[in-house]
Amino acid sequence: MNIAYWIVAGLLALFYSYAGTVKVVRSRDQLRPMMAWVDRIPLPATRALGTVEILGATGLVVPPLTGVASWLAPAAAIGFVLLQIGAIAVHLTGEDRRIALNVGLTATAAVTVWLATGL
C-alpha cells in the first residue's frame, strides 16, 4: 500500500506543482489558452489558487517522507478533492464544459485519501 501511495500521490503532486507554478508565474494572457475560466476569476485569486496547489503538493510528499505531521497528507488529498469539486462547478457554470480532467483528478485525489490513511 505504501508503494501505491507514492505512485499516486507522487503523480498528483507533480501535476499540482506544475499547475500551481503556472498559475503563480504566468500572465492572464498566457493562461487563457489553457484555462478558459481565467477571465472570470480575479488574477490575485488565480495566484492564490496556484499557491494553494503548490502547498497541497508539498503536503502530499513532505509529511510522509519526514514522519512529521503525517496527518497533513490525507488533509492535502481531501483539499484536492474539494478543490476539484469547486473546479467542476466553475467549469459547468461557464462556457467551458470540459470536466474530464477534473473528474479524473477528483478520483485520483480520493484514492490518495484512502491510501494516505494507511500510512
Rank of each mutant, 00 (worst) to 15 (best):
V22D: 11
A75P: 05
E95F: 06
V61D: 04
V111K: 00
M34V: 05
A4M: 11
I41F: 12
P63F: 04
L12D: 00
V113L: 02
P44V: 08
V103A: 12
R26W: 10
S17G: 11
V8Q: 04
G59R: 03
T108F: 01
A4Y: 13
H91W: 07
F80G: 01
L82E: 09
V52R: 10
P42R: 10
V61Y: 07
A89V: 14
T21K: 04
V52G: 08
L14Q: 04
R28E: 11
I85R: 13
V90L: 15
A109C: 03
D39C: 11
R47E: 05
R97N: 10
I99L: 08
A57H: 02
F80W: 07
T51P: 00
V113N: 07
L55G: 09
A100K: 10
N2R: 12
V24N: 01
I3L: 13
A73E: 07
I41S: 02
D29T: 03
A45K: 09
V62E: 06
L119Q: 15
P33F: 10
W114C: 02
L119I: 13
R40L: 13
A69M: 15
A76M: 08
G10P: 03
G56Y: 00
G56E: 06
G104F: 08
A75M: 15
S17N: 08
R97C: 01
T108C: 11
L11I: 09
L101V: 11
I7D: 05
G94T: 15
A4I: 03
Q30Y: 06
M1S: 12
W114D: 03
V81I: 09
T46C: 07
I7T: 02
G10L: 12
N102Q: 14
A13G: 06
A87Y: 06
V113E: 06
V81G: 06
Y16N: 10
